[in-house]
Design a protein around this nucleic acid. Sequence first.
DNA 1: GGTGCGATTGCA
DNA 2: GCAATCGCACCA
Length: 171
Amino acid sequence: MNKKFFDRDARIVARDLLGYEIRRRIGPRVVRAVITETEAYVGPHDKASHAHRGLTKRTAPMFGNPGTIYVYLVYGMHHCLNLVTREKGYPAAVLIRAVRLLPSGTLINGPGRAARALSITTFFNNKNILTDKRLILGPRYLTPKRIHTTPRIGVPYAGEWAHKPLRFLIE
DNA sequence: GGTGCGATTGCA
DNA sequence: GCAATCGCACCA
């Protein structure tokens, strides 16, 4: 896993991340999970993206280097984990919406639950998954046979962008 | 300085 | 069906 992996269109990265292992190190303990659902937020023209309104304090991480971790708080209580794609200065990211814990295989559905399962808070905001010791991508755990595609969840305000097939799932 | 709401979740 | 709960974008 390297910078080039993330320096690509968010749609490509969102599909490629499916089946990869993500590891959260908490002291001596490691939480392992397989990414099973993602969404792509493709650029500043994407009306569903936080970056649609431009560079703000909140969205600054989305304009960062490939592999930058973007964590935000929604509804005052849930954290959402995103990985920034494309070159520095171009805001795009992939939202991690679901994972399967290893080795149990327990499915953790929903971005808030997935972030919580990995103990992700805003501590990780603006860090980089390529260099951080506490959150890393592991090896590919499986190669998806079939990738299902649907519109993204919870973005009815995004006009035409609400319908675009930018949510990706396996199993 | 004030206001409104969200890339959600859990419970009635 | 709806309350929870807060950082921040936006307006004044």
